[in-house]
């Protein structure tokens, strides 16, 4: 299990990157749980209009958790999973960021990705870029050093 290729994405700089992902998994999950608790309380003022933001918060939380685990595992399948989740994360930040600016009414309560993650120091915007770069970088390393042919 723990040969060189399995830990490629999880060692060196990747270890710090995973720490950031873990932190955001925690933050997004916390926010999502809080919003869901609020949502299911009777008499919530934004019972209808808040639903979209709450769903997006939950989706973001799941994406951060999956990306954290996939990067930490780092085997072939996990790298593929990480590529898809971090790619989705990139699209999500851009789409939700733009959407939340164009249609403020749709987001009475914020998500991690609202206004491109401004509430989190724009880290949510930069994080998937770094993540994708890191996946590309480690794949490149693996190809040139260990992979004979496929």
């Amino acid at each position: 299990m723990a040969d060189k290729t399995t830990s490629r994405t999880g060692s060196g700089f990747g270890r710090m990157l995973i720490a950031v992902y873990g932190l955001f998994a925690l933050a997004a999950t916390g926010r999502s749980i809080l919003q869901l608790i609020e949502y299911f309380q009777p008499g919530t003022p934004y019972y209808h209009q808040g639903l979209l933001a709450y769903i997006l918060s939950a989706v973001a939380a799941v994406i951060y958790i999956v990306a954290t685990v996939a990067l930490a595992r780092g085997d072939q399948t996990s790298v593929r999973v990480a590529r898809v989740t971090i790619g989705t994360e990139m699209c999500g930040v851009l789409a939700v960021g733009l959407w939340s600016i164009l249609d403020k009414a749709a987001f009475p309560d914020t998500t991690v990705w609202s206004t491109f993650g401004a509430g989190y120091g724009f880290v949510p915007l930069v994080l998937p870029m770094v993540g994708l770069w890191w996946l590309w970088h480690t794949a490149h390393l693996t190809e040139s050093t260990t992979e004979p042919a496929s």
Partner: peptide
């Protein structure tokens, strides 16, 4: 998480993030 990364600078990088 940081202790496993002792060969490089990123072990302390993890603690910085935390």
């Amino acid at each position: 998480w940081a202790v496993a990364e002792r060969e490089s600078r990123w072990g302390t990088g993890v603690l910085l993030v935390a």
